[in-house]
Amino acid sequence: MKHLLLAALIALAPLPAAAQEDRQEIVDDVVQNHVLPRFETLAAQAQNLAQTAQADCKADSPVLRAAYGDAFDAWVAASHLRLGPTEVDDRAFALAFWPDSRGVTPRVLAGLIEEEDPIAFSPEDYADVSIAARGFYALEFLLYDERISSLGASGYRCALVRTVSGDIANLSAAILRGWREGYAETMTHPAPDGAYRDTGEALKALFQTLTTGLEFTIDLRLGRPLGTFDHPRPKRAEAWRSGRSARHVMLSLATLGDLAGRLAADAPALHMELDAAVARAAGRLADLDDPIFAGVSDPESRIRIEALQQMVIDIREMVRKDLGPDLGVSAGFNALDGD
C-alpha cells in the first residue's frame, strides 16, 4: 500500500457573498463590543486592585475587599474568552486556577507564608510561583479564608496580598495588550496564513467560547456544589469564602447572554428566544436568594438549584442546535465534544 488514494479533494461550497459580509460584521461586533471592553475593564479594575492593596493590605479592609470584588467581577465577565492572549504563558490559569480539586492553592500559600519566601516581595518574581498560588482564587484565600488570612506574620501576608494583586494587574494588562496589539486584528482580518484563515473560523472560535462558557457554569459553578443527591457538596461551590458563588453564575449568564445575542444578530427570533431563556434563568437564580448555594443540601431548595442548572443546559442546547447551524459553525457528531 504505497499510494493511498487521496485524490478526492472536496471543495466546500463557498457561502454567498452577502452571508460572508454578515458573518464578518458579527465577528467585528463581538471583538469590538464584547471582547475588548471586557478586557479593558479587567485591566482597569485589576490596576485599581493593585493600587488599593498598596494603600491598605489588611484582609478585612472594606476598600480592599470592594476593589477585589470589582476586579473579580471583571474577570468572570471575560473568563469565557479563552483565546490567543489568555493562553500565552498560561495567563488565564494564573488569573484563575479553579476548581482546585487537590487543594493546591491553600497548600502553596501556607508554604510561602510559613517560610516567608522572599519570592512574594515582587510581582515580577512571583510569576515563577505555582499557578495555583496566583490570581483571584489565591487572593480569596488571603482575604477570606479563616486559616490562611491569619497564618504567620501579618507583614509577610500584607506583602503577599500586594504582590498577588500586582501580579493580577500585570497579567490583565498583558492580556489587554495582546488583544490591542495584534489579536483583535488577527480575528477580524482572517488571512490564509493567519491563525484564522477565513471569517468562518474566527466566528467558530467565538461561538466555542460561548458553549464552553455555558458548560463551565453548568458543570462547575452549579454541578460541583450540587454533587449528587446523597452527597451534596456546598463547600465545592466557587468562591464561597467570599460569598460570590451565585454572583458568578449571574455574571456568567449576563456576559454569555450578551455574546449569544451578538452572535444571533441576524436571527431576530432566535435572539429573542435566547434573551428570554437567559432572563428566565437569571430570574430563577435571583429567586433562590442563596449566595453560596448552601441550599444544595436541603432537598426542597436543592430541586430549585437543579432546575436552574437545567435551564442553563437548555440554553446550551439552544445554542448548539439552533444558533450553531444558523451561523454555519455547528460541530459534527465526533467533532462536538471530544473523546
Binding site: F93, P99, F216, I218, D219
Partner: peptide, 16 residues
C-alpha cells in the same frame, strides 16, 4: 489530564 466525575468532563490540571 485529570478529570473527576464531580466536575463533569472539565480538565482539572492543564497547567501541571
Amino acid at each position: 489530564i485529570e478529570t473527576h466525575p464531580a466536575s463533569g468532563r472539565a480538565k482539572l490540571n492543564i497547567p501541571f
